[in-house]
């Protein structure tokens, strides 16, 4: 990033204005932003690969998030806790997201040029299937081992599951304090390790092929790249990364909102990466990491700023949903020339 992208600059400016208006303590904001960085960082990184493969924003990362949640619910059902539990969740989640990622990839190969709208619909569809399984399937077809997590009527899982067994088993590792700022070094490193993984994937043979397919699919096919296979691999990688990201997210929160935790993770992640200066054709690690910081800074300060200025916190809420959706709409509107070239 040689220059600050105009979109990022606007976010920076809005966050600073918001910070002033909200009257929040900067240290508090820094702490909050760091937490969000850990929670959402990997999810945003998951978007980089499909963008570079020319498939645009992958809104189907919610599917990866759901895979993580399935793993979690099963772990709670089997009453696994601690690191064993975490391992179990990862295995189930990643295995499931490999499978679903491949399915989504195959589906997207049939809707070339309309990948983004398709991933949104896939996300919606997956959500309803997921809800069907846990709200109706549990207690009727699937028999739970852990009755505590069931609704009183005996069908369906409770909205909230407490994850006592997992809460903060990672966050407290290598926790530093710098004045009032808490730095969970291990978690930050973990996010950076994922960033490193994504970066090195872009520097492998597969990464190069991804970029070639993204830039010019026809020519890529002519030099012997299996374009459809590459696209499927891109989506699989993205789904798996999203799954890992969501495991970190839930583990950090310590509670699982079974039916809603994954919702909006796609919109917020997409908005974040665009805030970091990515376009729907090109994105790098820097865009993702910078974007998370900027986007969440604005997110944290805006309700309080709305309260202070208009006496109504709801206005700040509206503002931030507008920012999330509006950033994506804006990015879609702006990239016309790049689209013509392809």
């Amino acid at each position: 990033m040689r220059h600050l992208n105009p979109v990022s600059a606007v976010f920076l400016l809005l966050s600073l204005v918001g910070l002033l208006l909200s009257g929040m303590r900067p240290t508090f904001v820094v702490n909050e932003v760091l937490i969000r960085f850990i929670r959402d960082g990997v999810m945003v990184l998951a978007l980089i690969i499909p963008i570079n493969a020319g498939m645009g924003l992958n809104f189907a990362i919610v599917v990866g998030a759901m895979c993580a949640q399935v793993g979690l619910v099963l772990a709670v059902d089997l009453q696994l806790t601690g690191f064993t539990g975490l391992l179990f969740i990862s295995v189930i989640g990643i295995g499931l997201s490999l499978l679903l990622g491949a399915l989504i990839g195959l589906c997207l190969n049939r809707v070339k040029g309309k990948e983004m709208i398709s991933t949104i619909i896939i996300g919606f569809l997956a959500t309803s299937i997921y809800q069907l399984i846990f709200m109706v399937g549990y207690g009727t077809i699937i028999h739970p081992h852990n009755p505590e997590m069931m609704l009183s009527r005996g069908i369906g899982i409770r909205n909230m599951i407490d994850l006592q067994g997992f809460r903060n088993i990672l966050d407290k590792l290598w926790l530093f304090r710098l004045g009032e700022i808490e730095i969970p070094l291990f978690m930050i490193l973990l996010v950076l390790i994922f960033a490193g993984i994504v970066h090195s994937i872009m520097n492998t043979r597969l990464g190069r092929q991804l970029v070639a397919v993204g830039l010019d699919g026809r020519k890529a096919a002519m030099v012997g790249i299996d374009t459809e296979g590459v696209r499927v691999k891109a989506i699989i990688l993205s789904t798996v990364l999203a799954c890992c990201g969501h495991i970190i997210y839930i583990e950090n929160i310590g509670m699982l909102n079974v039916y809603t935790a994954h919702l909006n993770s796609d919109i917020f992640s997409c908005a974040a990466i665009l805030a970091g200066g990515a376009t729907i054709f090109r994105a790098g690690i820097a865009n993702a990491l910078l974007g998370v910081l900027l986007f969440h800074s604005l997110f944290i300060v805006s309700p309080q700023a709305g309260q202070n200025v208009f006496g109504n916190p709801a206005l700040g809420e509206y503002f931030r949903s507008f920012v999330a959706y509006g950033t994506i709409a804006f990015a879609l509107m702006m990239q016309r020339q790049a689209a013509d070239r392809n």
């Binding site: 206005l315 949903s321 959706y325 994506i328 879609l332």
Partner: peptide, 20 residues
């Protein structure tokens, strides 16, 4: 060529704007 996805997000972002 990308009307549908853009329209989706124009619609989505118009809603919070109108909430305001």
């Amino acid at each position: 060529g990308r009307e549908e996805i853009t329209a989706t997000f124009i619609g989505f972002s118009f809603v919070p704007l109108m909430n305001y």
